[in-house]
């Protein structure tokens, strides 16, 4: 039995040696660039001291992981990380897909191109600069909201950086603003590859625009949407550090809604700069991501094997 499988393996390798050959440069790259350094995960289970070196330092089991769960913050940061990422995943499907479909319908030669280029702009503005721009909107004294918008609405000025209730909306909005134009390009590329005859076929059958979108555009986009979602799920315990650290200006009052795992870990280790604890946090995030992706991937596979990641 075993021998037979081995024989099949040899046969497959022989048969597909051209493909394997094509694969080999990127695979070698991954080994050098990713897999060898990946052995550094052992740091998560060690208490590093430089006199013994990385390998010689004593093993400490899960001691480095303790700080992640030690305080009541553990619940808050896990909730925030999961909550925001879920919101981002959903918004990053709805908004960019809508943008892509709408742009695709504008057959005008120039306008869609201009819209698309312009919508990519926020992506180039670094989070630090974004935080200045947000401050220009929300600043207590001369921010746009307090000096123009709130009086216009007939409301009193708000101390935005001390008002946690608004921030989930702000953060989601900033995330969408920054990434929607970028992500929509992926969907637009997929739509660009669709054969126009498919739409015509529906139209000839009397299907309107909505039917064309529903029966052609969406199904054609579904695989890429699923893949993008799966990839995001893998990173669900990680977050855009700049968004949660820079943009709220580290305002303490906002912590209950802005503190995520990455910012918590950063603040925990900024003083001690403990390699072991940093590695432990990364390992924890990766393991959770891996478990979630494997689970979702299995479900996707059950429904439609063609859409699964692997």
């Amino acid at each position: 039995m075993k021998f037979k499988r081995f024989k099949i393996l040899i046969r497959d390798i022989k048969k597909y040696k051209a493909l394997l050959l094509i694969l080999s440069p990127p695979v070698i790259y991954l080994i050098i660039n990713n897999y060898i350094p990946m052995l550094g995960v052992i740091i998560a289970f060690k208490e590093i001291n430089y006199s013994d070196g990385i390998l010689g330092s004593p093993w400490v089991g899960f001691k480095n992981f303790r700080f992640l769960f030690a305080t009541s913050d553990a619940f808050v940061i896990t909730r925030n990380t999961l909550g925001y990422n879920t919101a981002f995943i959903i918004m990053n499907i709805i908004v960019p897909v809508s943008i892509a479909i709408a742009l695709n319908e504008l057959r005008n030669k120039w306008l869609p191109r201009i819209y698309q280029a312009v919508m990519l702009f926020p992506y180039f503005i670094s989070m630090v600069v974004t935080s200045y721009l947000v401050l220009a909107l929300l600043s207590h004294n001369n921010g746009f909201f307090n000096s123009a918008l709130m009086p216009f609405l007939g409301k009193d000025p708000v101390n935005w950086y001390d008002a946690p209730v608004y921030w989930p909306f702000f953060l989601v909005a900033i995330n969408v603003w920054k990434t929607a134009g970028y992500t929509s390009i992926i969907y637009l590329a997929s739509l660009a590859g669709i054969d126009p005859q498919l739409y015509e076929a529906i139209a000839i059958d009397g299907g309107g625009k909505w039917a064309q979108i529903r029966y052609i555009s969406i199904p054609m986009l579904r695989p890429i949407i699923i893949v993008m979602t799966l990839l995001s799920i893998g990173k669900i315990f990680n977050s855009d550090f700049g968004l949660f650290f820079q943009v709220p200006l580290q305002s303490g009052t906002l912590f209950p809604v802005t503190n995520v795992i990455d910012t918590y870990v950063y603040r925990s280790l900024i003083l001690t700069n403990d390699l072991g604890m940093a590695a432990a946090a990364g390992f924890y995030q990766a393991i959770v991501g891996l478990i979630l992706v494997l689970t979702t991937n299995t479900i996707v596979k059950k429904i439609n094997p063609a859409n699964s990641l692997f």
Partner: peptide, 21 residues
């Protein structure tokens, strides 16, 4: 190979081994 590359998206050994490399 799909898993082989996907795995690198999740796990990394941190900055130190990368820097040594």
């Amino acid at each position: 190979f799909a898993f082989f590359i996907f795995f690198t998206m999740l796990f990394n050994g941190g900055l130190v081994p990368f820097y040594i490399m």
